[in-house]
Design a protein around this nucleic acid. Sequence first.
DNA 1: CGGATTTATGAAAGCGCTTACATACGGTCG
DNA 2: CGACCGTATGTAAGCGCTTTCATAAATCCG
Lengths: 341, 341
Amino acid sequence: MSEKTTHATVDDVAALAGVSTATVSRCLNAPERVIPATREKVMAAIRTLNYTPNFGARALASRRTGIIGAVVPTLENAVFAHGIEAFEQAFPPGKFALLIASSSYDPQREREQIEALVARGASGLMLVGFDRDPAVYEWLKNRRVPYVLAWASGDSRPYAGFDNEAGIAEMVGMVLELGHTEIAMISGMTEGNDRARGRLEGARRALAGAGLDFRGVAEVPYGLETGARAFEDLIANHPVTAVICGNDVLAAGALRAAHRMGLRVPQDVTITGFDDIDIASITHPELTTVRVPHRRMGSEAARLLQQLIDGKEGESVLLPTRLMARGTHAPPRRKDLSAPA
Amino acid sequence: MSEKTTHATVDDVAALAGVSTATVSRCLNAPERVIPATREKVMAAIRTLNYTPNFGARALASRRTGIIGAVVPTLENAVFAHGIEAFEQAFPPGKFALLIASSSYDPQREREQIEALVARGASGLMLVGFDRDPAVYEWLKNRRVPYVLAWASGDSRPYAGFDNEAGIAEMVGMVLELGHTEIAMISGMTEGNDRARGRLEGARRALAGAGLDFRGVAEVPYGLETGARAFEDLIANHPVTAVICGNDVLAAGALRAAHRMGLRVPQDVTITGFDDIDIASITHPELTTVRVPHRRMGSEAARLLQQLIDGKEGESVLLPTRLMARGTHAPPRRKDLSAPA
DNA sequence: CGGATTTATGAAAGCGCTTACATACGGTCG
DNA sequence: CGACCGTATGTAAGCGCTTTCATAAATCCG
């Protein structure tokens, strides 16, 4: 009509190849149902017309989009970046594409993001953690959108995760074994964040098992700076010999603060992390932390979600964590100098 | 038909609200064109029916998807994770959603990803760097898909980036000024990667300006380990006093290797990075590096892409880099001990 | 107060594809 | 050799929405 050529459609291809639109469609979606000779003609026509199927039309007619969505708190946190990367790569390349949104740890925003992704045709969702307004789960259920929860475990909903409480408990156990009794914790913000809360509570419980409690607890937003500041406060106000951190970034910040305060790690103070991201092995000394299989979790989540999308059952997967005893832990300094020579 | 209620459609909403489908559509897409009274009725109907528009139908009829795409080499590299995060947040919340794919630095895979995103309805793309088969650009042009290139600069195509060569040149300039002459470089893989190549060439040119050349150059994949290994090799085979690294992760690896080899940094050897990601400020000593405004770049790219999608002109943006002189640089150790006391 | 505007809504024609279902055509087998 | 069957392709009916155009109602103004 206008001089600007409009895009080729199935009809154009069908006409040029001398077949019906149904055959063209079949060539694209179920090539084995078309004999090679015909298929060749069609493919040639597609090539010469530079044809690509219209996404909307295809989605409308087939009721499938091949889009799956993920909402994470932030990509700035390496654990999510790595998990998402693995998640994406676990899907068969051409078949699915990944729609990503980040919520900045804001429940309201997360909710909007979820709705936005579903509105954009996501046929399955990966979400982080369990903490969430029940209405959101209800909404998802109404729309029959399958989802899998990651970075957490133990819920009746489908998840691919690990046990935050058990992981931190193992770490606290080791610290207790070293002889520490004056222990503090720098935790991530626990509100609406079951991972952080699980770690804090798991640690507290482990301590309670030994008849102890934290000398101090700081709850701070994710970040190097916040970890450093929290460490300074804690040290200034409590006679602690060990600081358990809710994640590696907080621990790295604490470690930096310790250095700047002239404290030797681990001789003067023990500092531990959680996650075992890259950062943990470049601090000096290297960070004692808990390894979490973030990548593996991402791919397991992908596998599980695919099953759910296909209407199969799909079993949640619980991944193990592992204590990485590196260089930031040691027995507490003896205050009691009357000990045997 | 079946007992399983199928989803509500515009028709259902229209019927319940006692209006036409056109009005329902307008309520959703241009509320100001419907008087409040009517709008209320419609919204109520939408609520009671739990209606959400069908994505495919909407895309088909309106020829818009509200999906924009991005292909990065990997999310594991913090620079991309941060850039993407900012990119995503720069779009008006409900209006767009971000489709992400990672290419693992594989041009072939990148190409497939680009096609997959466009096939999924992406109406604009963010790509990393310029190096790319011209056929890809041709393809994009044919389909009239606007795109913006990030993390690089100087091309005639729309970009939001910075000058890799200038950034590294400033760093090399400083190292030369300190008196170093025996210099080596650990570069990222340059094939198909204009960022790495720009940094390597920029450094080489800066050196040539002082009549020098590198004593050694290692070209290695991204990673802490590869950086460490390259550093060991370089030190073992060349009498270098400074090692310029193509990025912070390589530099952090080199720094760790230096520590393990018993070298003091910066007294024995100067090590520099590029990017200024978090990691750069937790090494010990903190890394001397080049700051790149990754987040800012992400949001500028988003702004530019939106203009292009809207059919406006849109001007490329060149962001400045900045030398961050921290703790890993110093004058070279004097071999000549006859210097004045 | 009547004709000219403006504004709110409705009717209906697609958007470009997928997919029953129908058809045609060889080949099999009793 | 005819009834039957399987396979390759065609016909055409939607999928659920947006949008143009038409119409009806409200508003304005001389």
